[in-house]
Write a protein that binds this DNA or RNA. Structure first.
Lengths: 227, 227
DNA sequence: AGAAGAACTTGACTTCGGTCAAATATCGAA
DNA sequence: TTCGATATTTGACCGAAGTCAAGTTCTTCT
């Protein structure tokens, strides 16, 4: 797909004129697994739109622990927080799987907000992100590891009965705010109870068991996926 | 102070014309301690600017526990997330102390974003909130109760050697993400160690002890590739 | 003032989930 | 295919902070 088409997709409400204005400034980039897009504290003059792959957004605690804020799915932009107020990224971004992104330089971008429709969509995304982060706080502080695990599945892959995991258990562990040992033990327990079965990267879950977690909305599935 | 002056203060970059446009629509309101401004899930058609007092912003967990996201200080607006995308408040707001606010109806407000300077300031605030929430996640998940307590003091009252608390211990406990029993025990321990002394609502802290928490967050960024 | 009810404290107890350490297992590059 | 690096599992252990329950202050309202 052409860069212009991708951008049109990313910003559907942006006028053709503005689209062509920034298209020339944007560039496609590929990041292999584990590649850093930016680190917390980095000065940035661009933000990103994820086309394909998975990006982990996280902060690093003083002790070096990674606190995952969000695993991004294709179709979302991120890092836009450098546009105003401060040009330092407050979080780090790393590719969890090989990923394709558009890099959007920040200079001139702010002008595009003169367009009312585009601006409203843009601000709406910022607000969706704010909602997401408040949900995330609830998620991390109020649910135990088991509930976080199942909510993660539903949030990321939907309510299904079998899943094909595209990320490692280690990454799942950190996405749900725990460590590999704890996840490993949880899985073991769930297998024993015959709630799930797991082989390779294929996971099967008892549908009726999973449903108990799907009632209240899990973080992040409000149509448009915030980061 | 006159409502118009207050608004001018709240939105310094807004033109006189726009200011007078919304001034007529806004209203002053007073909320006594424990009064609810809005609850999570409420439909809203207005947001607020805090002039005086203290507002607690929180979510409620499925088990009824309150998860405090932020204690607001005068000079900030809140609830603006109903402006676009969704008109439901994602959080609840309650006055912790008697508070004066301006109520700003959402209709017509969005038009004000046509003004570039004002719009940029407004978006900058949204981004600051996003930064704050990511910090809050780090705060709640990576620090123990003692560290959260001292960081709370510094964050809310500044780095001082004596404090006059304007909110109850119960509220402090929930602001730092714990329960009264735990805070009570922490205080007892700190008193014993002669790190603090506390009588009535006056708190004194050993300055040198407090300083260890005042260093701006310095995540151990070694530059290495996170895995 | 006195009573009802908050707020706060204290004690005994529990537990989830983390740490540390030591196997296995698995995967990717040469 | 083999080697070394990651990823994953397993066991033993621990500890911060929560729960439950029972006092003990404070506040506040009549």
């Amino acid at each position: 797909m052409e860069l212009t088409d991708i951008l049109k997709n990313a910003f559907p409400s942006l006028s053709e004129r503005s689209l062509s204005l920034i298209a020339g400034r944007c560039s496609l980039a590929e990041y292999p697994r584990n590649e850093v897009l930016f680190l917390e504290g980095d000065k940035g003059s661009a933000f990103f739109f994820l086309i394909e792959g998975a990006i982990k957004i996280f902060k690093t605690s003083p002790t070096g622990q990674e606190i995952v804020l969000k695993l991004l799915e294709p179709g979302t932009f991120f890092g836009e927080v450098i546009l105003l107020e401060k040009n330092e990224y407050p979080v780090s971004a790393v590719a969890l799987t090989s990923s394709r992104v558009v890099r959007i330089p920040s200079d001139r971008f702010i002008e595009l907000l003169d367009e009312r429709f585009f601006r409203n969509d843009f601000i709406a995304v910022l607000m969706a992100k704010q909602r997401y982060l408040t949900e995330r706080i609830l998620y991390l502080t109020s649910y135990d590891v088991e509930e976080r695990f199942f909510r993660f599945l539903i949030d990321r892959y939907g309510l299904r009965t079998s899943y094909v995991l595209d990320i490692s258990k280690k990454d799942i562990a950190s996405a749900i705010g725990t460590i590999p040992e704890t996840l490993s033990r949880l899985i073991d327990r769930l297998k024993r109870r015959e709630v799930i079965s797991w082989s390779g990267n294929s996971l099967t879950v008892q549908a009726d068991y999973l449903e108990q977690f799907s009632l209240e909305d899990a973080p992040g599935h409000t149509g448009r996926t915030p980061s």
